[in-house]
Design a protein around this nucleic acid. Structure first.
Lengths: 343, 343
DNA sequence: ACCAATATTCAAAGCGCCTTGAATGCGGAA
DNA sequence: TTCCGCATTCAAGGCGCTTTGAATATTGGT
């Protein structure tokens, strides 16, 4: 059933039917009711392609998820984020167009998306400290919102981020207050903003407390279980053994826990661990007594908000860039405890 | 740059330019070269909306990921699967339209997708043993491929699945060969086909070996870490203690491992564990000596193949439904060992 | 040089919708 | 009754592409 058929069926012009369904005021309320009824009965939905050709709006948002190479890790956070964004799109009648692409292809994908008029805007995932995508997107004039921040940007742009720096400073401070001094940071790739900011927060706390920084207690890599396991194993076997770990994700922390347990140590007693918890739905770290002490912030919530921000921007292109900084909560769990010499 | 501008710039008709770019034979090769060059220079891409309006093909595939409720678990497998499918779509110029939706809304989403002509086909995720979506999709005439199978279907349909039954039978047999008799199955929700088939495989092996089946060694739920932990903890504390666990996913196994370690037992010695390994990229279970003995099958690969199957089906609507059954590999790791009475 | 056959190119219609500008119907004021 | 203004409705053009059927250019044979 298309507009023509529907309007013929009703004995009305396409104009009137279209206006009736799109809420224009110059339609008799009686007529509108009739039209709406008939549309519902005939399960009529405007052809998306025709509609966007006519209006110039694609009614779709692009999400381009970068991976380093073809068989590389897909950041598990993205599924949660997208789940949030999808909620928003459903609400406003937008579609979500997903592309998982190698970083090297990203530029051409954005260009193509724009040239094809496939999307009205995009969400930028995994921003780097100095991310070339900002300039690119400004250049091609595609509205966008960054999930995270670009540290070295001269211009303003839309972003929504968690306060990584503050979160990790706070977590480090807690460990220091518990008497720890040798605190290892098992971080994500520090070319990425989120990891860099976490590192800064960690260093902030050390500096403020006059605690020396040990290069061999800093690790930075992709967030996998294996990375957590191997790094923690090595650190525990080294001379400069840490008494606490600050870990950038739940998944990495699983590897760390494996290493600790394998070394015959007890988490929360011999060794303290604080993680950042994105609240991935299949890793529930909750209850009255969570396993991990954590800085917690819902990625799904960020997805919802980012999508809303983008839709607003698309709606009003003159809107000044918006920024949202979400705060995390430091949640006490059973993975932290006072420093013990014996460790 | 649109077709009109490009053709004016070239001094050719839109017809010729369009045909030149779409590889029609009735275009002079010299002209074609000229057109292609100009198109590349002007970064011309046909407007997707206009193109699909003219051709009647949306050039997009829908993926509808069901979740039980708004804040429910998003199956982590889906990200890997989608990463595979996306590779295929990139290759063929298709877009991937993702919707994450509560199960109760799924029907209306499929209908809407079809009525809006937003997609040319869909991938059905997480099929149930008796899944109403088959009839629905046949009804609205939307091509589809199921990732997994619907156990109770009279009609043929496209699917690609891993041989769950055989995999779990084989894994169970291995445990039996190692002397285990009290083998717990920590399974997914058995309304879902994959979990049901795994259960059948497990029972097949028990039956063949005349080993009794204990209801309290069977668990079925959503695949979260917490589920694994709590279930294993309870089973280990019960009268009818299992000496081996068969676990439906890596994530659940992490919880199981936590429970085992907390009970002071050693995996691969006191207790054996076999998992199913979907090869999630951030949980590498490889190397010469993987931590977990596992039935392994790449979900990403399945995504690639499913997408190819769907595109073929769309290309030729008269194609008889296709089926692909992927076999898993039983990979020996360090989480299994012979039965010990002491456990 | 002429014509049929073939190779190229083109003008125009149509995909299904929205939207501009014009047309119609109606009631109340004059 | 006549006219004007407002409330409704409509016809037609356009979004950018593909594709049909017609037109033009080119080629080889005679």
């Amino acid at each position: 059933m298309n507009l023509k058929e529907l309007s013929e069926h009703l004995g009305l012009s396409q104009t009137t039917v279209s206006r009736a369904l799109n809420g224009y005021p110059e339609v008799n309320e009686t007529t509108r009711k009739r039209v709406e009824l008939a549309a519902a009965e005939g399960n009529y939905r405007p052809n998306l392609r025709a509609m966007s050709l006519a209006t110039g709006r694609a009614m779709a948002i692009g999400h381009v998820i970068p991976v380093a190479s073809k068989n590389d890790v897909v950041n598990p956070v993205f599924a949660e984020f997208v789940a949030g964004a999808s909620q928003t799109y459903n609400l406003y009648g937008y579609e979500l167009m997903l592309t998982i692409a190698e970083s090297k292809d990203e530029e051409s994908i954005y260009k193509s998306l724009a040239a094809k008029r496939a999307v009205d805007g995009v969400i930028v995932h995994s921003p780097m400290r100095n991310d070339p995508r900002l300039a690119l997107l400004n250049d091609i004039g595609l509205p966008f919102v960054v999930h995270g921040r670009v540290c070295d940007s001269k211009t303003d742009y839309n972003w929504i981020d968690m306060n990584n720096r503050r979160a990790f400073k706070q977590a480090t401070q807690l460990l220091i207050d518990l008497g720890h001094e040798k605190i290892a940071l098992i971080n994500g790739q520090e070319t990425l903003s989120f990891a860099w900011l976490r590192r800064l927060g960690y260093l902030d706390a050390l500096t403020e407390n006059n605690i020396p920084e040990y290069a061999d207690l800093l690790a930075s890599s992709e967030l996998t279980e294996t990375y957590g396991y191997e790094t923690a194993t090595n650190m525990l076997a080294s001379e400069n053994t840490p008494s606490a770990f600050l870990v950038s994700s739940y998944i990495v922390a699983i590897g760390v826990r494996r290493a600790i347990s394998q070394a015959g140590l007890a988490i929360g007693k011999d060794i303290s661990v604080i993680i950042h918890d994105d609240e991935l739905s299949y890793f529930h770290n909750g209850g009255a007594f969570p396993q991990f002490t954590s800085t917690r912030s819902s990625v799904r919530e960020a997805g919802i908000l980012a999508a809303e921000m983008l839709l607003k921007q698309i709606d009003d292109p003159n809107l000044y860039p918006q920024n949202v900084l979400l705060e995390s909560h430091l949640i006490m769990g059973s993975s932290t405890g006072p420093y013990r010499k014996s460790a």
